[in-house]
Design a protein around this nucleic acid. Structure first.
Length: 668
DNA sequence: GATTAGGGTTGG
């Protein structure tokens, strides 16, 4: 029954602050069933979200204690819950909701058109105003309109490190280790961008169960999934031919083989359903009438029509319009029990050759794809040290093409000053950036037949080329900024500015410790913030204020002062401290007319970029330093129109937020 | 009255 407003002000969950007591509404995203603590209470852990949370991973965790379980809000995922007088505290860097004496709660069902009344409440006396009803209605409709928990991904979309849900058909099964590891050989009718580890099922003791007819249909699309531990039992129930959904499958980067012998080689992924059930990890056998099963069946029938089991599949004919490059080095070879069609044409198209070694019974495959989605990366932690914000700012004189770009000097100067501040918000909100964007858009419009950045048919001369990834479509920066992280993209853009300018080798190169990631400019004479560790290490310094390790090739090398200090503290002084590496470390402001981003370029990626001229080359040859200088001027001339560049960009997260890094790109 | 516990991937 509606009552008058009780005067509560409900705070959006993203506006909450620590050490406050608030009234809130939220939708239950997660709930750990209540359990008896070792203290006197029951504990319920619950996570809430609402419309104010744009990031799908955002939530308010609530830790709720009560002497009596019935006093806890025993909701279900999806339910709407209202708290009055919930305490918000900081815990481990996050906000946490806690019940205190006086806290009350009310639970509503999530069903649209359902009763506006509560289904549970902490007290018999509660008030639901018209405003509350309207709020519940809005939340119900909002939640129904968005599929929050869907992490569904097809195989063509996977990238190393991704956790995703896979809807697929099981073609074969094989127990690898009883009770521990089960192999499911599956297909979803798509082909990954990455080579996928293949499990050897030819070895003794492997009994593969398969449907030969289905297997023939799926050849070229088959991928191996390993199901471990907790999920072995559920996996064992699966019969070949069944449609399943694997929740929280991990496209783990497979590291035990040297698949990246070249900079441009792609990482191999292995598809693994790890032990445990966190993040909803599980296997579900799909109801054949379910929407997921219907959709999958339709797609599989499109790409590889069902045929009677003794008729070779249509896919054996090459040149089919739907033909995908096939590679039956893959699962086929391993399926001793399956009759293999002979003569299915196998080839790897212009895709990347990953130089796969076949070791430990493992091969990897790489198939063609037309998909624009590329990949993400996992091991880019090194990059956390890319931060040139302490460096001197770029010089306005480098932006003297202001007139050409219809940008005033002042505006260019603002950009330069902000170039190494990562404050995207401040820049995005800056009206002064607009003319720059506009000028670039105009620039592209005046470029002969180039009507659009997406017009890949246009023969556009770029100042850089990318190495590899021929089948990857370009992504606009606007989209990159909105995309999940980490990920990799191919971009066509212009370099608006970069830093540092190669005024001297000293200001251009950095010293980097591969062990502890200590980093300092070559020109530095003091460590930042007068670190005492460094001050003490100066005693042995010569030339630069860093301890000299050795001199070879006519180049001074320095031991890492951080590691020297740490080893002396840990009485580990017998260990030779690592030698600092000379590295490039640059940052580019690139803009493609849709938006801009700051892209880091360093270490091997930078050597590739500068056509294999290494940092130490610059120390030894003035000509090579000049060559690098000229290359940069080519990519971002101080005067005149900036050329287009094409580059690979990977995004990754650091404590400072999302960063971007250039890789597999070289100046022409 | 304080305490309890503080969600949670990455081996294969």
């Amino acid at each position: 029954m509606s009552k008058t407003s009780a005067g509560h002000v409900y705070i959006p969950l993203s506006d909450l602050r620590g050490n406050t007591v608030v009234d809130i509404y939220g939708i239950v995203r997660f709930l750990k069933k209540p359990y008896k603590t070792r203290g006197s209470d029951y504990c319920l852990v619950i996570s809430l979200f609402d419309q104010s949370m744009s990031d799908p991973d955002q939530k308010l965790k609530c830790l709720l204690f009560a002497k009596d379980m019935s006093r806890l809000p025993l909701a279900e995922v999806g339910d709407i819950i209202r708290f009055h007088r919930l305490s918000i505290v900081n815990y481990a860097g996050e906000l946490q909701g806690q019940m205190k004496p006086g806290t009350s709660w009310v639970i509503f069902s999530p069903s649209i058109g359902g009763s506006p009344d509560a289904i549970k409440a902490s007290s018999i006396n509660y008030t639901i105003t018209d405003e509350d009803k309207s709020r519940v209605k809005n939340l119900r409709e909002w939640a129904a309109s968005r599929n929050f928990h869907d992490k569904k991904c097809s195989l063509k979309e996977i990238c190393p490190g991704l956790y995703f849900d896979l809807v697929c058909q099981v073609v074969s099964t094989c127990v690898i280790e009883d009770g521990v590891c089960l192999l499911l050989r599956v297909w979803d009718g798509t082909v990954p961008n990455y080579p996928v580890r293949v499990i050897d099922t030819e070895k003794e003791g492997c009994r593969v169960h398969s449907l030969p007819g289905l297997h023939r249909r799926a050849v070229g699309y088959l991928y191996d999934v390993c199901i471990f531990d907790d999920h072995f039992e559920a996996g064992s129930q699966i019969k070949p031919g069944q449609h399943v959904k694997l929740y929280n499958l991990h496209a783990a980067e497979y590291r035990n083989l040297e698949s990246r012998s070249e900079l441009s080689a792609l990482p191999v992924v292995e598809l693994t359903l790890h032990q445990g059930t966190s993040f909803g990890r599980r296997i579900a056998i799909l109801d054949e009438q379910s929407e997921d099963a219907h959709k999958l069946r339709r797609h599989l029938a499109d790409i590889s029509p069902e045929v009677s089991s003794d008729t070779p599949g249509k896919l054996s004919s090459t040149g089919s319009p739907n033909m995908v490059s096939r590679d039956n080095r893959t699962a086929d070879a391993g399926l001793a029990n399956d009759a293999q069609p002979q003569g299915n044409q196998v080839h790897v198209s212009s895709a990347v050759d990953i130089n796969q070694p076949s070791t430990s019974g493992i091969t990897a495959k790489r198939l063609r794809t037309n998909d624009s989605k590329v990949c993400n990366v996992k091991n880019v932690n090194d990059s956390k040290n890319i931060d040139t914000r302490n460096d001197s700012h770029s010089d306005n004189s480098d932006s003297s093409n202001a007139n050409d770009e219809q940008v005033s000097k002042k505006k260019q100067s603002d950009i330069s000053e902000e170039l190494f501040s990562d404050s995207r918000e401040s820049r995005r909100n800056s009206d002064e950036l607009q003319p720059v964007k506009e000028s670039i858009v105009n620039g592209s419009k005046t470029e002969g037949s180039a009507q659009s950045l997406d017009d890949t048919r246009c023969m556009r001369q770029t100042a850089t080329v990318i190495l590899n990834h021929p089948n990857t479509k370009r992504t606009k920066i606007e989209r990159i900024l909105q995309h999940m992280v980490p990920y990799k993209f191919r971009v066509l853009a212009r370099v608006v500015d970069y830093h540092p300018k190669p005024k001297s080798v000293q200001n251009f190169l950095q010293l980097y410790c591969p062990d502890c990631h200590f980093l300092c400019p070559l020109s530095c004479h003091k460590l930042p913030d007068s670190e005492s560790t460094f001050e003490r290490s100066l005693e042995t310094g010569r030339g630069l204020d860093l301890p000299v390790g050795s001199t070879f090739g006519g180049i001074q090398h320095y031991n890492c002062p951080e590691c020297v200090e740490n080893s002396s503290q840990n009485s580990d002084s017998l260990k030779t401290p690592p030698i600092l590496q000379y590295i490039y470390m640059l940052r580019f402001l690139i803009d493609d007319g849709t938006d801009w981003l700051l892209a880091n370029l360093w270490k091997n990626d930078a050597v590739t970029f500068f056509r294999d001229i290494s940092p130490t080359d610059l120390l030894q040859s003035k000509n090579l330093f000049q060559e690098v200088e000229e290359m940069l001027a080519q990519v971002c001339p101080a005067e005149g129109e900036k050329p287009w560049i094409e580059c690979c960009i990977m995004s990754y997260r650091t404590a400072q937020g999302t960063q971007y890094q250039i890789f597999d790109t070289a100046i022409v």
